[in-house]
Nucleic acid binder design. Structure first.
Lengths: 245, 245
DNA sequence: AAGTTGTCGGTTGTCGACAATGTGCACCCG
DNA sequence: CGGGTGCACATTGTCGACAACCGACAACTT
């Protein structure tokens, strides 16, 4: 990246986008409690901008399901249920499985290309595990899975996957017990790489399914009783109506 | 549904949501040309509201990829390339395949349930084909595929699929040549049902893959030279930077 | 006392005006 | 005549203020 393009990229992001990115990071890192209400005016004052860009950022996060909105009432940090966790990991499974198949179908060159990426991520993951920094481990895990999905060269799937991963990370950070052991993590990811290297679709499917379903099970099994007390979260819709906004 | 709840549902949707729904319908139906610019002020005046709700609606459609935005320049109706069509149908394939697998794994009861739905959609599709109304055929086709995906009981996948189908319909309406023959359509959808009834995952995968890839091929093969002349569409980004907003 | 209705605080929803930005064109200079 | 510069226009981006709305509590009625 040369000097000019790096200069451009400084102001590339719009204000709402930067606000959304910051808030997303706060939620994913667990700095904002599930069920906590966010006020447009409060955020606007805090950030020194008007409500418009804040509002736009919040709407984005609502669409990413990290926030829940109730019309004329407010927005709250999403509280993920077991059903949500199952949905998220099932959806991740759908995308990863297809991505793997797609890569395998793309021929040996593409496979080799992705394998190189994946092995780099694997090294990084090992270093992160040895450092014991959970933040780094999450990040390396994300990078690995994204590398796999991005290997399918499908921006729509990549975008959808990014959102799902944010949700998953949020769940993980609030259910700290659910951290998988380092050995299991390394083992699973090496299985990924091996199955891809072998070009074995069926095995790949099984590896992905098993990895994600065990991860989901870890999350749903840990009784998340340590969550914050029931905040005045959006608990008031009378019928089957979905959340609005 | 009693009289009162039907009254409630009149004002259930927010203004931005209704605007987005209307615009989406216009785009999907082909009433708005690809590459055509949409002005916030013009739409606001036309609808008798201010720019705020219009702006929010446009942002939603941008996120659904039916519109393309360029900061401080405007928004345009998306122009789908062959690469887009491939992406869209690949992504649909990913979701439908997983949904089918998920339904099959849910056991005989769920399968029977979905089969009932699907057979209803099949009847409707046949009626639509006999009527020769392409609008109805599209709608019946949509209902069928949505019934399959919704059968997986995964709201995240269902939402993602809805967006993909809108994109696909938009492509179809602008490439009218690409309409599949009625026989092929009925045949494919009956194959779906049969494979699901048999609970045969591998066959289901193959049926979905084949149906969607042939549909995508129809779209990409028809040289879409009949599209509108090059509008001043967003063609001005200097480097690999994605579209913004 | 139970149910209904009125009021109130707080939040978002909408609006019109202004500022900032990017584009295209005419102009100027070499 | 070509390349760069500055201007003018159109569009979005942002702002502050007001209106509409929802939920909760209190007062009222029966």
């Amino acid at each position: 990246m040369n000097r000019i393009s790096s200069l451009n990229s400084l102001e590339m992001k719009s204000v709402p986008e930067r606000i959304a990115d910051d808030l997303r990071q706060l939620i994913v890192d667990g700095a904002l409690e599930p069920g906590q209400q966010l006020s447009e005016v409060a955020l606007a004052n805090q950030l020194g901008v008007s409500r418009s860009p804040v509002r736009e950022a919040l709407q984005r996060l609502v669409r990413e399901r990290l926030l829940v909105a109730s019309r004329n009432r407010g927005v709250w940090v999403a509280r993920f249920t077991d059903a949500d966790i199952t949905e998220i990991y099932d959806a991740r499974c759908a995308i990863e499985t297809f991505a793997a198949q797609s890569i395998i179908d793309s021929g040996a060159d593409r496979i080799a290309e992705v394998l190189t990426e994946l092995r780099g991520c694997l090294d990084e993951l090992e270093r992160a595990l040895q450092s014991g920094d959970f933040q780094k481990v999450s990040s390396a895990d994300l990078t690995f899975h994204r590398a796999l999905v991005d290997g399918a060269r499908n921006s729509r799937l990549s975008d959808a996957y990014a959102i799902l991963f944010s949700e998953a990370l949020t769940c993980i950070h609030w259910l700290e017990i659910a951290r998988p052991s380092g050995e299991e993590l390394m083992h699973d990811h090496m299985e990924f790489t091996a199955a891809l290297e072998a070009g074995d679709s069926a095995r790949m499917r099984e590896v992905i399914r098993s990895h994600l379903s065990s991860a989901a099970r870890n999350l749903t099994e840990s009784k998340h009783g340590e969550g914050p007390a029931d905040a005045p979260s959006p608990s008031a819709w009378t019928n089957g109506q979905q959340e609005n906004q």
